[in-house]
Amino acid sequence: MLFKKNNKKQRKVNNRIPFVGISFVGGFLFLVVFGNWIAPYDYEYWDMASMMLPPAWLDGGSMAHVLGTDALGRDVFSRLIHGSRFSLLIAVACIACYGTIGVIMGLLSGFMGGITDMVIMRLCDLWMSMPAIILAIILVSLMGPSALTVIIVVGIAGWPGYARIVRGECLSIKQNDFIRLARVAGCSNFRIMFSHVFPNIANTLIVLVTLNIGQMIILTATLSFLGLGTQPPSPDWGLMMNEGRQYINSAWWLVVFPGVAILMAVLGFNIVGDWLREILDPKQKLR
């Protein structure tokens, strides 16, 4: 009896909804949507009279600027809120870009097999052995740094990961009888790929995308931090850290708060992604 009770408890813990993750992600998405109304200032608004103010709870801080201001007197809190939109938009655009390429390549590779499969997979190997950061530096020097450049760089660098996973899924789904029956019904390869195989990998994709948004936020922040991504005055979190870096001794809040924002968003998406994987994967559910 006791054993049984224990067992039940264990199971409950495993399936618990991750409130922390969901609240981080929820808060983040809330800021993305309603940021304009919440933020007390515009992200470009500057006021030389109140530059380098510390957060409100420190000496010299004021409630007008809760998280302090930067070297140009811009409100850190407002910029963080506006920055959430930048981060998410860039992350989503990147994923949409390489997700599409990856899924198409993966489906082609897994479904067609043979020479198509071989060519695409070798292309993946080639692509993966190219360091993304160096690729980014090359492209930026060609196109000039901007948000668009980031999207293009990350977009064309990331597809092999998706292609591999989609290919693997596709290989196992391809073995099913319903694919054969679709053939018997006279469906073309492309139709089978997109209307029969693709819906079956949607679960995997949802998990993959959720887990990936976190990575993308980090990657775009890295690129911005290196000065390869979005340019001032946009309130990108990575860019804010870069700008605050030179004042780290006197104004730590310029670096710490964007850093915490990145951390919370990424952590949130990772936790939610893991949770989604658990509830969407029937094999995991049985455990």
Binding site: N176, D177, F178, L181, A182, V184, A185, G186, C187, H196
Partner: peptide
């Protein structure tokens, strides 16, 4: 295929795509 020659497979539970509505799959033909 599906027009002049058609086929019925062994296991009905796996010869239909579980995540598409029956209507859609019949419509395919």
């Amino acid at each position: 295929r599906g027009n002049r020659i058609s086929m019925i497979l062994q296991d009905p539970m796996v010869s239909l795509n579980q995540i598409l509505r029956v209507e859609y799959q019949i419509g395919e033909v």
